[in-house]
Design a protein around this nucleic acid. Sequence first.
RNA 1: GGGCGUAUAGCUCAGAUGGUUAGAGCGCUGCGUUCACAUCGCAGAGGUCUCAGGUUCGAAUCCUGAUACGCCCACCA
Length: 714
Amino acid sequence: MEKQYNPKLVEERIYRFWERKKFFSPGVSSSKKKYSIVIPPPNITGSLHMGHALNAVIQDILIRQKRMQGFKTVWVPGIDHAGIATQNVVEKQLKKEGKTRFDLGRKKFIERVWEWKKKSGNTILEQFKKIGVSCDWSRTRFTMDKEYSKAVVLAFSHYFKKGWIYRDKRVVNWCPRCKTSLSDLEVEYKEEKGKLWYIRYRFAEDTRKFIIVATTRPETLLGDAAVAVNPRDKRYKNLIGEKVILPVVEREIPIIGDHLVDPSFGTGAVKVTPAHDFLDYQIAKKHNLELIQIIDEDGFLNKDVPKSYQELNPREAREKIVQELRESGLLEKEEDYIHQVPVCYRCGSLIEPLPSEQWFLRMTDLAKIALEAIKNKKVKFYPQRWARISSDWLKKVRDWCISRQIWWGHQLPVWQCKNKNKFFFSDKKPSRCPICKKCKPSRVEDVFDTWFSSALWPFVAFGWPKRTKDFKEFYPTDVLSTARDIIFLWVIRMIFSGLEFTKKIPFRKVIIHATVLTKEGKRMSKSLGTGIDPLLLIEKYGADATRFGICWQISGLQDIRFDETKLLAGKKFCNKVWNASRFVLMNLEKKEFSLNKPKGRTAADKKILKELERVIAKVDRNISKFEFGKALQEIYRFFWNKFCDIYIEKAKKQIKNAKTKKEVKDTQRILIYVLVNSLKLLHPFIPFITEEIYQKLPLKNKKALIIEKWPKQK
RNA sequence: GGGCGUAUAGCUCAGAUGGUUAGAGCGCUGCGUUCACAUCGCAGAGGUCUCAGGUUCGAAUCCUGAUACGCCCACCA
């Protein structure tokens, strides 16, 4: 053995050894006890970041421990097609060639995405291997592969038949860059310094009088349908029913009363732009106001505004309109105002709320069953508080807009009769229209929200809708580990999808792990340049040390301010383990040892054996509570302080002063026994080095540490 | 506007059910290399546990309030 541990000489070889021997397959156990996990499928466009690394380590620790405990384990990996994200990547490539997706057309564009997928789609999975995850790669799934797509269609048809799918024209979040609608959860808010403009709307009857409204978006005034006040507002109550003149366009609009108006904001009177604001849309519906769309899907003002405003973007229109108001004396005042502007979570462009025909999934019943499962603890959250937060969200959830106007994804299996303008479901191209029996129906162009397919992941990953052997054996899964930012987007939707389609919860426990922040407490993000690439860390410290360092920092609910010195500690620890093993090896004669528990002759022997018992118990307890940092720290302390510092030093003397050969052998037996058991406890945390050492030890019936028996407490 | 989380050594964090000198890693200081490991060993310095009240024989730990930082949700235009 070398004097120093060198991960570069070990990791790749050991990983290949595990793969070759198929140790990641459930086949290594014939037990009836099952343990399964599905990986949160990373985006196909992604590359490994700290969040992935942390999550991978958590799941790998669990799977490895259960595997050693004799469970029939499987950890299913996969990748998500990530509709918008992927489409954006390929569109950017096209842009370099001076083309847009529309130049290629839908069919060619999708081919192009598949090409891209073929080339770089598996990068992230290869990166996962570098940290040593023991996924069963033979079961890798992709959310767009053939079988998966069938499952998506089936899921949709199920909802469709239940009457939970409907089409509606609503104001939706629209990204003019991606040219698609987004769900509420896909919108992010960015703080922006803006202005609050106070605008005079003159009365039709007496143009010397006016009512003042405050707005942050004066340009939308071109689409105003009313001015609204709170009917309980004494200042304005008696004005309800009056008519005012919309500035610039000189159109007459009514003053209406609605409780949704907050009298304490601005002047208490608001302009109502039904087509470009969610609240206004609601008000307009109640009052039967006209929907005047002034901004188009490409984000520019359309033909329904005065000529001089046509084809401006909203920002330009805003400046122009403020200028015009100022000149005509209709601008009362302007104030600085900091507000949250909505942006697309994929491309960062400003979201433009606008009316659009979209497909929705009714949430009423689905929310109910999910709520029930959480309430009855069929699904348990760790930390617990996420259960309540999830329930609160479900109680208020709105119907899910499941259609997107992009091309990359599962196209809706819905067709339109041209004659009767009706829609129907069909899983293949209909030869004849079932409605009018005449026309050639055309397929709806929209694709599903990516999360619609991800919501089916835990059971489709095992073969659903087919009742495969895997599905019967491994579903429901035991644990789902993920980040908190996709609880609503993904976790909850898996819960109700699982219940709806399989009548079972998809996982018994949900681990919401800490978020990895920079040392300064900032979010790690690629765009801010604050991320740390785990692959570089692996390069620098080795995979085990990286896992050690990450794991050491996981505890309780605390977010992690990433501390690289912990990886250094991990590297040192690996070296310590290496050298302690080297010492033990050097002191053994060339014979085979059994792993039966020795009795121990001296007080030191007995003490270390007892301490080992104790640490086994602690590690078991902490892993079962998902307290991975604590578990690791317990072994660390035992191994370094108790075993190396105290026992090995004692053992040197015991060997030196031994009176008989048996006494020497007794000490050797303790050394190797404690060492092997330590390696077992350490294996889920630092798998490579422990396997490498194990392979060097002279043991009877030796196979591989990864499938060795987990130490049992007495 | 509502909700949640965190505040302990220079840095990153542990400190169930309140109880003797508050711990770890990294860093720092001193000494030590034929004896597994200098990626090491031994010894050591370093904390009014954010602040203010309260409960208690006793509080880092429980209660109330304040402050700071961070996160989530929301139709304040």
